[in-house]
Nucleic acid binder design. Sequence first.
DNA 1: TGTAATATATCGTTTAATGATATATAAGTC
DNA 2: GACTTATATATCATTAAACGATATATTACA
Lengths: 113, 113
Amino acid sequence: MGRNVSLEMGELTDTAYYILLSLMDAKHGYLIMQTIEEMTNQRFSIGPASMYTTIKKLLAAELIQLFDDHDPKRKSYIATEKGIELLKEEVKRRREMVLHAEEIFKRKGEQLT
Amino acid sequence: MGRNVSLEMGELTDTAYYILLSLMDAKHGYLIMQTIEEMTNQRFSIGPASMYTTIKKLLAAELIQLFDDHDPKRKSYIATEKGIELLKEEVKRRREMVLHAEEIFKRKGEQLT
DNA sequence: TGTAATATATCGTTTAATGATATATAAGTC
DNA sequence: GACTTATATATCATTAAACGATATATTACA
């Protein structure tokens, strides 16, 4: 395995989560970065270094794959079925993280906006 | 600053999120680990190394503080007001992460359960 | 002609997470 | 009393993740 590339990815970091989510539709790297910024209203942004290292990992873990968009100048990617399944689990996990907080705030009578 | 201790913590990692959440009520380190395992039904667990390094960072960032439980053999901690505010923001951020996924899955007509 | 936007990629460093290990006390049991 | 399990805190050293800086090339457009 090359540098900075592991096959683990049992749980997705926020960076990997957003990249995988944006690849529910095929996209090339640059468009992934833009889509994430747009989707999160500039609150979450990923630079090229984080993006390309994460893409390598997602490819190695077979959570995304190359997608042929007939453009030799750009590389496009798309989430695999395995990637979509993991993404669903990770959405569920984040829902639970929110629920855990809501429970505790509720029990304490504290407002959670 | 010592080893592995930064003052950043603008966004909470999952580990820091759960530790901070469990410290909405005062607890000592060992109890934090148990509480998180229990709360997440064993799906998320933090070992002593991750916990104590994260506690140091949370202390340095003043998101938690020492809490005197009159037991000289154990150190207890509790979330500060600043910590609670950040926690609320981080709950919100995770809600948005879920919403972003729900939007995309809905648009694609894919089931998300 | 230049310069801003698009597009991909890597190096090297910083930050985060964690396995392994050490230490000590308390509680239960054979 | 001796032994084991649970409680409790802590650090070292390694692995994994994130990312600033930088390089390169193309396209758009003023």
